[in-house]
């Protein structure tokens, strides 16, 4: 069992942490360098946590659990205009990031209004590439109920946020509804506002747990972090991608941020120690996000084996 944690510390000697994680059989999911600070998102075997904690203490770093690590969450607003950004949407996205999730902010092209709000096929497909979505609505319950059409066809769990209290039965297509986060014109700073952000994180955590438990019934042939590691090793060009996170991890696969046409064969040819190639155990298709490569690992019932 791998434990998702976040290491925050100085840049100096952080290589020791990376080496230790690799030696323990864990994975470094993300590395963010901010001047002299570094933030590492790590998956480490639960039984070896104490060793990593000792190392973090020695380096005067901080090690905290990041329950959403290794997942990608879409934070969806009706548009990217001043009415929805930056306050509530950025607060939610940042808070999810602090708990280890990779978040993508998505403004719909025509999501505004009560009667005229709509979502197109491309936007739906793009949101479906994530592990969960958070839809941020406003302060009027009539509008929130009416805007259900925006997420009705989305197959990943959708957490809806808005201002007023609304009963769950009134929003049957939402995974959960979190109130007290509607349209605001200031950053979340009061304890109650931070509490609402915590409730969103908890709700997203529950949504992801639900997906995890459904995956556990028919496990994936291999784990996404292992695919990420192998792609990183065998397709070295991925390190030259301009994206801050060249390989984004999902619960069911990865997104490789390289042009699809030029690199799909190289990704398909990635081979594991067991002798199978990635093309045999996963579907490799173009992502809806830019020109990236989407890798979806097949389940054990489709390939007949797990490694």
């Amino acid at each position: 069992m791998l434990e998702p944690v976040m290491f925050t510390g100085g840049l100096y000697k952080h290589d020791l942490v990376v080496e230790l994680v690799e030696d323990l059989g864990g994975y470094v999911l993300q590395k963010n360098v901010t001047q002299t600070e570094i933030i590492l998102l790590i998956l480490v075997p639960t039984e070896d946590m104490a060793i990593l904690q000792a190392m973090a203490k020695e380096l005067r770093g901080e090690l905290v659990r990041a329950p959403l690590a290794g997942t990608e969450v879409a934070v969806v607003t009706p548009t990217l205009a001043i009415h929805h950004l930056p306050h509530s949407a950025c607060d939610i996205a940042e808070y999810l990031r602090r708990h280890g999730s990779k978040t993508n902010m998505l403004g719909l092209a025509r999501g505004v209004g009560r009667e005229i709000a709509q979502i197109n096929e491309y936007e739906t497909a793009l949101i479906n590439e994530h592990d969960a979505a958070v839809f941020i609505f406003g302060n009027f319950q009539e509008c929130i109920k009416k805007k259900e059409s925006l997420y009705r066809n989305i197959s990943v769990p959708v957490v809806v946020t808005g201002g007023p209290e609304i009963e769950a039965k009134d929003l049957p297509y939402a995974f959960e509804y979190v109130s007290s986060i509607g349209r605001v014109a200031h950053r979340a700073r009061k304890a109650t506002e931070i509490g609402s952000l915590d409730r969103i994180v908890e709700s997203v955590g529950r949504a992801l747990d639900k997906t995890r438990s459904s995956i556990a019934k028919d496990p994936l042939t291999t784990s996404p972090p292992r695919v990420m590691d192998s792609v990183r090793e065998q397709v070295p060009d991925v390190e030259f991608s301009y994206s801050p996170l060249p390989i984004a991890l999902n619960l069911t696969g990865v997104r490789v941020k390289l042009p699809y046409d030029a690199y799909k064969d190289a990704v398909k040819a990635v081979t594991f120690d067991e002798g199978v190639s990635l093309g045999e155990i996963a579907t490799i298709k173009p992502s809806r996000m830019k020109d990236y490569i989407l890798v979806r690992i097949l389940s054990a019932s489709e390939t007949g084996f797990v490694f």
Binding site: N139, Q141, G163, G182, A185
Partner: peptide
């Protein structure tokens, strides 16, 4: 004043207008 059962919306819009 907001029509319907939108007391919360009215209260929040008041804050929003003041903020802006």
């Amino acid at each position: 004043e907001v029509t319907g059962q939108e007391e919360f919306g009215a209260k929040k819009y008041r804050e929003l207008i003041m903020d802006i």
